[in-house]
Write a protein that binds this DNA or RNA. Structure first.
Lengths: 200, 200
DNA sequence: GTCTATAAATCGATAGAC
DNA sequence: GTCTATCGATTTATAGAC
């Protein structure tokens, strides 16, 4: 097997991907502030020059890492949810299955909020995070609206508010659970059910 | 008016209080990571030696700043809530009045979560934060249980879960609102009402 | 308890060679 | 695009005088 000779573009893409992968590990392990570009470059088999050649800086690199993960996560979840049977119990089952995955990702959640706090110092980053937040929220609103319509539910709150509340619950419970593992593992889906149907 | 001669203890307490006050300003303004003990000491009229003489380090100082604030905040809220009339509408009014205060404190919320993310590097801090979290949660559980009993409500979830959900909502909504001010300002109280009563 | 002075260690970012 | 070398700035924490 002769390894294919990489074109310039392929080689650059490979470097980028490798840097992203190792950046993910470093950011997850140490958090944003304590992560070191030097270590990222070194573990990926490059030096810092490669990082600055492929990314504008630490913030851009971290933003891309976070974006990549949560975009993937949401899309996989949405796909499963849409594919489930058109009964509320079937849909809730999908939610219950995913809550442990979402809530279990303590490191991701801590990284995301630490990075959000970071935006205090940077107007531009603040705007980009707000845009991203709105994008995700709109996706949640669409998904939620579709589910409610299909299931014939009329929730006690407007769907726009439900979306914010669901996202807030997911983030807030995950943070509390990161500090204290004793929190009820089905709380997220239970609370979502109450918000959507008004009852347990 | 001759200024009273301060005893050694009074003088020490004053220094501590001054340092705490200026630490609060610095941490709120810059966040945990970017805050500088040097600046804190200087603006308080001391030098770094005074900080290390009164606090074990940056983490301890910040923890005390955060603790002082949220303990005060919760106690004031609980006092008002307990003092209100024994009707659900009167109690909800207190909650509605406080939600804008709690949600408006973006800097405090960002600081608290940035600090929580910080605990990744420090087992001891992790335990202390978890203890604090449990302490607050127990207070919320007590307060919530008392309210439900007085008002004769039977919520769709156990009171322990409600407490976690309410805290998660408050934190999660505040973070989203810090990034995007367009979020409905009454969402927190609306969602709490649904969680407590099952309806709007 | 507080000050001054300094240690000791980083880190992000850049310049210039290749 | 990537590397090496380094700048420049900052920080926490400590040592020792008073």
């Amino acid at each position: 097997m002769t390894p294919k000779r990489l074109t310039r573009q392929e080689s650059a893409a490979r470097t980028r991907a490798r840097l992203l992968d190792h950046a993910e590990r470093e950011f997850l392990r140490r958090g944003y502030a304590a992560a070191s570009l030097d270590r990222i470059a070194e573990t990926a088999g490059y030096s810092k020059g490669a990082v600055y050649g492929n990314f504008a800086g630490k913030e851009e690199l971290c933003l891309e890492v976070i974006d990549r993960h949560f975009t993937r996560l949401f899309q996989e979840f949405a796909t499963e949810l849409v594919a489930a049977e058109e009964r509320i119990e079937a849909r809730m089952e999908v939610i219950e299955r995913w809550q442990s995955k979402v809530l279990g990702e303590h490191d991701w959640r801590l990284l995301a909020i630490e990075f959000a706090a970071q935006s205090r110092h940077n107007r531009r980053l603040q705007r980009r995070l707000a845009d991203r937040d709105r994008r995700i929220r709109n996706a949640v609103i669409d998904l939620l609206g579709q589910q409610l319509r299909q299931l014939g539910l009329t929730p006690p709150l407007p769907v726009e508010d439900l979306a914010v509340a669901v996202m807030a619950l997911a983030a807030g419970i995950a943070v509390q659970q990161a500090l204290d593992p004793d929190i009820a593992p089905t709380l997220l889906s239970d609370a979502i059910r109450v918000l959507l149907t008004g009852t347990r």
